[in-house]
Design a protein around this nucleic acid. Structure first.
Length: 329
DNA sequence: TAGGCCATCTGGTCCT
DNA sequence: AGGACCAGATGGCCTA
């Protein structure tokens, strides 16, 4: 029997229980397709064992594990298992299925919240998403950077702000952030004198991860519409009016870059065109970071069926997040 | 092929 | 008893 990938399944019993589960599970919100309906043997190895296959149903009762004498086997906690009558098996099945559905829905809720978080990050791309861990890291950095900006310690256009933002992030994510913060043909904003230490003087080591950073090079002439994620300038810090904010004022003489208002960001391709070489002080060519540091992943695999097609995607600045909105519920 | 990331299932624990 | 939360296990997909 073929699974949903068209591959031979590993066992008839397993598949029979899977099919049974798939039929049994409905989407919590009723409209989203359930990813569980892919064949996912992962973690289900015990399904046949625990929930009982058709074969098992023929056994009147499942033998309780009597012998705890095996010193190698991990001791089972909790109450002693009772004998599984058919009725108990059925109840167990039903409970397990419900619990699985709840767990799935819980995780979907968690992912939705994460997606909301992604959408208010300073760089946001629907097609090249930050991984979960990188999203959390960047969010943390974002909060720190904003806090410092609010306290007046650093300008949102400063190198220090960028450094705070990129602290502890993988190189690809740093690239993305750096790319996002470089808007328009004028490049990022001019460095302030107080920010110059460590800027042009040579590589900077970001705290925590020891990332070597290239000498600063803010201007990026001829930078096409960003191949990286979308910077939502309204997000950029929700700082339009903030003291020192990058977009606080636009006098003809200042070097502040107006908010990027270009077309939606095209899909990212980490391997090919993430960030123009040397366009960012945080840029490192891909071969400079270990494979383990990939902080981005293509969302096409899992997310695409659940998300808007790229064409219909509107960058965040076209629909700014509602401050104070409670997401997830 | 290894490693990263992911979704899902599962059993344990805690709480109501 | 049942739900929420959590962590471990498992295996799929993707990229380098």
């Amino acid at each position: 029997m073929a699974n949903l990938y068209g591959r031979p399944s590993e066992g008839a019993e397993l598949v029979s229980s899977l099919e049974w589960m798939d039929d049994d599970v409905s989407s919590p919100d009723g409209d989203k397709p359930i990813k569980a309906q892919r064949y996912r043997p992962g973690g289900m190895g015990h399904l046949g064992r625990e929930l009982g296959s058709e074969d098992m149903e023929e056994d009147e009762e499942e033998e309780e594990e009597e012998g705890q004498g095996d010193g190698n086997a991990p001791k089972r906690r909790g109450p002693k298992r009772k004998r599984m009558t058919k009725a108990r098996q059925e109840r167990f099945k039903a409970r397990r299925v419900k619990a699985n559905a709840r767990e799935r829905s819980r995780m979907h809720g968690l992912n939705d919240a994460l997606e909301n978080l992604r959408s208010i990050m300073p760089c946001h791309s629907k097609t090249q998403k930050l991984s979960k861990i990188e999203t959390l890291r960047l969010a943390r950095n974002y909060i720190c950077a904003l806090s410092e900006a609010l306290e007046g310690d650093q300008s949102t256009e400063s190198r220090a702000f960028m450094d705070t933002l990129c602290e502890g992030l993988s190189q690809p994510t740093s690239n993305l952030v750096a790319g996002c913060l470089q808007l328009g043909p004028g490049g990022f904003v001019e460095e302030r004198p107080e920010d110059r230490n460590g800027g042009r003087g040579g590589p900077t080591v970001l705290g925590g991860v020891g990332m070597a950073v290239r000498p600063i090079s803010y201007s990026s002439p001829g930078l096409p519409s960003p191949p990286y994620g979308t910077l939502d300038s309204a997000h950029l810090l929700h700082l339009r009016g903030m003291k020192g904010g990058a977009y606080e004022s636009h006098s003809p003489n200042d070097c502040n870059t107006p908010p990027y208002d270009g077309p939606p960001t095209p899909p990212l391709s980490i391997g090919n065109n993430l960030v123009p070489k040397q366009s960012s002080p945080h840029y490192l060519p891909p071969h400079h970071y270990p494979p383990s540091s990939m902080g981005l992943y293509q969302s096409a695999r899992y997310e695409l069926p659940l998300e808007m097609p790229y064409d219909s995607y509107h960058p965040p600045h076209m629909a700014p997040p509602q401050m104070g909105t409670v997401y997830g519920d």
